[in-house]
Amino acid sequence: MKGEIVVETRGLSMHFGGVVAVDQVDFNLRENELRCLIGPNGAGKSTFFKCLTGQLKPTFGDVVIRDLNVNRAHSHEIAGLGVGIKTQVPNVFEGLSVQENIWLAARRFHPAARARSLVEETLDRVRLTDIRREVVNELSHGQRQWVELGMVISAEPWLVLLDEPAAGMTHDEVLLTAELIREINKTASLIVVEHDMQFIRMIADKVTVFHRGAILIEDTMDVVAADPTVREVYLGHRKK
């Protein structure tokens, strides 16, 4: 296997009143791994993701990032460890320009001069140089997603957590996003929560399938796709 474990959850559970959204999940991510989390609606992927990013505090269990228990950590503290986070709904600074958005992310961890060159570099990588002065809320959905991806990579994180990075994108945009994600993977470990099976085929290394708040299966895409239980979960409970 690859390097040491960088993200680990032990018996992670998240309850909302009587609803158990995530049920005792043990999960490991190793260094430089690219892991996809998939599962039908309501499987607990996003809740699990929010527990990892500090947006939700788990009811039971532990989240450990590089030997550091981050159960009670705030989102900004987790980001401060060098973790890049992209949420499901694009969260951008609406009224600000593309470059200001990216600058704010780059400047958080880098001195002024380095931040400026990182902005140039990032704009290039996410192909937004032409519209760098546009205000973000006037852009298309796909472009806004890229602004957010740009913010994530401009901080030069070693761990990247992406929630549905390809949602609402055109086919061409999806291809470019897949390429970008593989590129990010050269320098960082990744967890990608995704719905789109085709997109996952493009990037996936190892896939974790969530179902009813627990891990159903964890293997390569080919094995997962061939698994009868996964098919049943995705296509609905059909009795043959």
Binding site: T53, Q55, H74, S75, H76, A79, G80, I85, T87, N91, V92, F93, E94, G95, L96, E100, W103, L104, A105, R107, R108, F109, A112, E148, M151, A155
Partner: peptide, 22 residues
Amino acid sequence: HFGRVAVAIRENELRAELVGYD
């Protein structure tokens, strides 16, 4: 930098937090 972060927080508090600002 401080002022620009203040504006960023006005625009989107969650994003500011996820980028790593307290």
